[in-house]
Simulated assay, not measured.
Amino acid sequence: MADPSWTAPILHVDMDAFYASVATRERPDLAGVPVIVGGGSRGVVLSANYLARSYGVRSALPMTRARRLCPTAVVIAPDFEVFASVSRSVLENFRRVTPLVEVVSMDEAFLDVRGSTRRLGSPAEIAEQVRAVVHDEQGITCSVGVAASVSVAKLASRRAKPDGVVVVPPARVTAFLHPLDVGELWGVGEKTQAMLHRIGLVTVGDVAHTPVRTLQRAVGHHLGAHLHELAWGTDRRAITAKAGPLEPERSMGADETFSRDTDDREVIVRELLRLSHRVTGRMRTAGVAGRTVTIKIRFADFTTITRSRTLPEATDVTVEVFRMAVRLYDALGLQRARLRLVGVRVEGLVARTSVHRQLVLGEPEHGWADADRAVDRATRRFGAAAVRPASLLRNS
């Protein structure tokens, strides 16, 4: 039977209990224990794992009430640097699938994959690949909704939780949507839900079969028209590439998980070159340069470390970032430690036009920066595989 997801190219990817999952991923002692991520006694709940949620604990709940609901919960203080780092890595993976990534928040995004299906398979297959990569690289899970419109994909990902995929092709939209309570529609809050219930519109199907003008008289012109679109799943279908609130281009990076754990320096250095090439290419496209080069190393046991060093001048030159990445790796003296993942990140980004490189006596007029820009022009015209460092060709 044909895969129904071919007609549903919009993915909504939502991390499962993101903050709690990240906070506990290296704490096997907390398996089977309710966990709350939040501030002190006067703070609020930032996140809770699913076990804590079964006691009624929800995000934004005052901590005092959360503790009363679930007195056995373990409370963990949030580490926003770690959360932001994981979020950036996840978004980098999304952008390897498609450039059309619309970030909603640190832990969710929409992806338009219609341009990626020839390379990666059907939208449902891509959704499974995304889930597998997030789990493999970050040790957390996500749920994916697959549909032809933004709002239906959002609802589908909610139904997929935790750690699943739900596909709603156009032919199944009404069967999926219409039995739901109107409060399930994306953007319908408690007040709007209560108002619709008061006038007898309880289910999404009730809204769908109410004439638009009747809806507009009841709830207003704009909201009435919008509710009608949501009820039929015909809302916005286009995804706009948009960065997240914690991403601004203060840093850019990329990670890669090896197909099998390796201690081969040649393989590791070649991957550092590939990642440096990818990151600096994105930087030049965005018109930025950065001074701090960071590498991430994840060992076979999932232990993860980072090392960084600041350059004398901001750069977007591939070879300069690569050389520093290799220097940082060699300085670790890992001997035969087996690695699962490596990553390269450039931080402290500034506009490229604000960088004035100090000229060096005897330096050739044209150097690596000019070569990079020539490569960029070739790849824009002929595709990403048109020109690559020679050492990357052997495994291509």
Rank of each mutant, 00 (worst) to 15 (best):
A52N: 03
P28H: 05
A84S: 15
V133E: 13
V355D: 01
F83G: 01
R172S: 12
A374Q: 12
E256Q: 14
W232H: 15
C142W: 10
W368C: 10
D206M: 12
A132M: 11
R336M: 06
A175G: 11
G189K: 11
V188S: 11
M15H: 08
L393V: 14
V35G: 10
R381C: 04
D264T: 11
Y19F: 15
Y329Q: 07
S149W: 02
V152L: 07
R345Q: 13
R291W: 01
T64P: 00
R96L: 12
L46S: 13
T72G: 10
T24S: 12
E137Q: 13
N49Q: 08
G244T: 07
G38P: 03
H277W: 12
P179K: 02
I239C: 09
S47M: 05
L272T: 06
R377D: 09
T315K: 07
L91G: 00
D136L: 13
V387P: 05
A52C: 07
A371L: 15
V204Y: 02
V57F: 02
R217F: 03
S122W: 11
G333H: 06
N395R: 15
P9S: 08
E266A: 15
T117K: 04
R284H: 04
D330Y: 02
H277I: 00
V342D: 05
L349Q: 08
G348N: 02
P211S: 02
V57E: 00
R118V: 04
M106C: 09
E125N: 08
F382L: 14
T294S: 15
A147D: 03
T315F: 06
R338Q: 13
V86M: 13
F80N: 10
M324P: 03
S149R: 01
G164Q: 12
V82L: 15
T257L: 01
M63V: 04
S21G: 00
V321I: 14
L230R: 07
A20M: 09
F80M: 15
R159H: 04
K242F: 02
T353K: 14
F110K: 02
S47I: 07
V90I: 15
P170Q: 03
P245T: 11
M283R: 08
V293F: 06
E365D: 12
G367V: 09
P28A: 07
Q193A: 11
V166Y: 03
S89M: 10
S116C: 03
I295G: 02
V90F: 08
V97W: 01
P211H: 01
R381W: 03
R198D: 13
G224Q: 01
M1L: 13
L100M: 12
V207N: 07
V146D: 08
S151W: 07
E26H: 14
R298E: 10
R284I: 05
L339S: 00
A325N: 09
H222C: 05
E320G: 04
R250I: 08
A231S: 14
S41P: 10
V269M: 06
R213N: 09
E247N: 06
V168G: 04
F176Y: 13
T214N: 03
S157V: 03
V22K: 00
L69M: 13
V13R: 00
T117I: 11
E266S: 14
Y50H: 12
M283L: 08
R95Y: 02
P312E: 09
T98L: 03
T294P: 02
S5T: 01
A300R: 14
